[in-house]
């Protein structure tokens, strides 16, 4: 059995999925903090350390933009497909568990096949580690 760390609400949504999608997964209930204070979130974002040239280039280009439409084009025209793992870890740490929870909820509402559940597991695994890191001494 593979482990899925889900909140109580997410567990309910997972339980409402077709039985074949639930097969092979063991749900462990996760307590996600309901609030992420501005100071911690802000500092996490300021402490992002990038290695990936593509991401660094995106940040550099964004700094010079003065038009929201161009910023939207820059973001929507970029993806994370070839970003290195260390930088993905940096980004996930920076945004924290609450936006990841929003993403997981969206995935659960759209889940159609095993690949979607694997996507949820990926996000939930990262979230679980973030929560553990924030609350362990």
């Amino acid at each position: 059995m593979n482990t899925l760390y889900l909140t109580g609400e997410e567990k309910k949504a997972f339980g409402a999925l077709p039985a074949e999608l639930q097969e092979g997964w063991e749900v462990v209930v996760e307590a996600v903090p309901s609030h992420d204070d501005i100071q911690h979130r802000s500092m996490r974002l300021h402490l992002v350390h990038l290695h990936d040239k593509k991401l660094m280039s995106i940040v550099e280009r964004a700094r010079t933009l003065t038009d929201v439409g161009t910023l939207v084009s820059l973001v929507s025209g970029s993806d994370l497909s070839d970003v290195n793992d260390a930088d993905l870890a940096e980004l996930c740490f920076a945004i924290g568990p609450i936006p990841l929870t929003r993403i997981i909820r969206e995935f659960l509402s759209q889940a159609k096949d095993d690949s979607d559940i694997e996507g949820i597991q990926s996000l939930a695994t990262v979230r679980h580690s973030l929560i553990s890191a924030a609350f362990s001494a």
């Binding site: 996490r44 974002l45 300021h46 992002v48 991401l55 995106i58 940040v59 964004a62 700094r63 010079t64 933009l65 003065t66 038009d67 929201v68 910023l71 973001v75 929507s76 970029s78 993806d79 994370l80 993905l88 980004l91 996930c92 920076a94 945004i95 936006p99 929003r102 993403i103």
Partner: peptide
């Protein structure tokens, strides 16, 4: 991608926007 990239951009320094 949009969520992660927008957060990254906002966390960067001195964004003109």
């Amino acid at each position: 991608s949009a969520i992660l990239l927008l957060a990254l951009i906002a966390g960067g320094t001195a964004l003109a926007l």
